[in-house]
């Protein structure tokens, strides 16, 4: 079971995040036509099939991205958002769909170093770019204090918007390793939580900063 295996410890959740990253297909060997289910050996064959069989349908495109440090070569449909490709093609569900219009921040990822709303970004626009998701942050030991602080302070209730907040927090700390509470509120102001966790994020991030920047002296 998902949650049982995730358990209480950091290591278990990280192991799962790590397993999900490892399970991402680096390159699709067999390509399935998304319209009729016929299978092909490569992108070229699929394109030819579209021209012959589905001339009026929008044809798939190739996409090369680095996701959480791993190079991926995918065949996607042009209208797919980055969020959809992460979920359907790569099995990464840390970016969540809440509003699907760029109005809530739950799907935040880091694209070429910048916080980005993956529901509001076409995957086809991301060719050649590097994407970092919450799973990638979770497996990087550098960010363990941040995740620890999030869990210690209940910076979540139902947990659905939490990964989006965590990614936005990480993006903030990349740019500003010692933010003030006001900086944090501003940086997280594009993320909607209905469970009332807003003050908890500032608390958790400030504590993580103490640990990460000042070596945890005040935290000990």
């Amino acid at each position: 079971m998902e949650a049982k295996a995730a358990g209480i410890s950091f290591r278990d959740a990280c192991a799962q995040a790590s397993a999900r990253i490892a399970a991402m297909p680096a390159k699709q060997k067999i390509v399935t036509c998304p319209l009729c289910g016929e299978q092909f050996l490569g992108f070229g064959d699929l394109t030819a099939h579209y021209l012959a069989e589905h001339p009026d349908s929008a044809a798939p495109v190739e996409l090369r991205m680095t996701v959480n440090g791993r190079a991926c070569q995918l065949i996607i449909e042009p209208q797919q958002t980055l969020k959809e490709v992460l979920q359907y093609n790569l099995g990464l569900t840390g970016a969540k769909q809440m509003c699907d219009r760029g109005q809530c921040g739950s799907c935040t990822v880091i694209l070429d170093g910048k916080p980005t709303l993956s529901c509001n970004t076409l995957a086809a626009d991301c060719d050649g770019k590097a994407v970092e998701t919450v799973e990638g942050i979770a497996v990087n030991p550098k960010w363990q204090p941040l995740i620890d602080a999030y869990c210690k302070w209940d910076a979540m209730q139902c947990g659905y918007c939490t990964p989006g907040f965590l990614v936005a927090a990480k993006a903030l700390l990349d740019r500003n390793p010692t933010p003030t509470e006001a900086d944090i509120k501003e940086a997280l102001s594009g993320n909607i939580c209905i469970c009332g966790t807003y003050p908890r994020h500032s608390q958790a991030i400030l504590e993580a900063v103490t640990y990460m920047v000042k070596g945890g002296a005040e935290n000990a």
């Binding site: 998902e2 949650a3 869990c151 210690k152 209940d154 659905y160």
Partner: peptide, 17 residues
Amino acid sequence: NLPGLTSYAMATGVAKY
């Protein structure tokens, strides 16, 4: 400040809805 049982799963994005 006792971490929730599934907090790590939620924070790291491995919790599935």
